Amino acid sequence: MSRSNRKVVPECAQALNQMKYELAAELGLMTGGSAGGADTEFASELGGTASAGGAHVNWSQIATRDAGYIGGNITRRLVQQAEQILKGL
């Protein structure tokens, strides 16, 4: 089975990365600095440490449960935002 993280709207990549860092910060997974918008999409596949605005997250060391929490909450926030937009129509 092939996996693809291809963005439907590539212009949203920075906003999605920012959400990822905000949630990592809420979990206490960041060390130093503050959340930002560095491109970290492939950091875990490369086993590296990604940074955003001086903050670092070693994505290869994050527990599966925490990664699932981050991904699930990104989805929840995106659905909430879409509902708010549709409510205003």
Rank of each mutant, 00 (worst) to 15 (best):
E45S: 13
N73A: 03
Q80A: 07
A35N: 02
E83P: 15
A35F: 14
Y69M: 06
G68F: 07
G33S: 06
R3V: 09
S2M: 09
Q84W: 02
E45N: 13
Q81T: 01
A38G: 15
A38L: 10
R65H: 13
T49I: 04
Y21D: 07
M19Q: 12
I85L: 08
S44L: 13
L89V: 13
I85S: 06
L78G: 05
Y21C: 13
S4K: 11
S4D: 07
D39T: 07
L16C: 05
G47Q: 02
G54H: 08
P10L: 00
V57R: 04
F42T: 11
R77A: 01
Y69T: 06
T40Y: 04
Q61M: 09
W59L: 05
K20W: 15
C12H: 13
G32T: 11
L78V: 07
A52F: 13
E22Y: 14
G71Y: 01
Q14A: 06
G32L: 06
A38C: 14
A25I: 10
K87S: 11
G88C: 04
G53V: 06
A67Q: 07
G47I: 00
N58K: 09
G48W: 12
I74R: 00
N73D: 10
L29V: 15
Q80L: 08
G32M: 06
C12T: 15
H56P: 04
N58Y: 14
G37N: 11
E83A: 09
A55S: 09
P10R: 01
G72M: 00
Q81V: 00
S51W: 15
M30F: 10
A24E: 04
G33E: 05
E41V: 05
M1K: 15
I70Q: 02
P10S: 02
A15M: 04
L86R: 08
K87E: 05
A38T: 02
R65F: 07
G54S: 08
A52S: 11
I85Y: 04
N17M: 12
A52I: 02
R77F: 00
V57C: 11
A63P: 00
E11M: 12
V9L: 10
E83S: 09
E26H: 01
G54L: 03
A52V: 01
G53W: 14
G32P: 00
R76K: 06
G47E: 00
L78W: 11
Q81C: 07
G68E: 08
A50T: 00
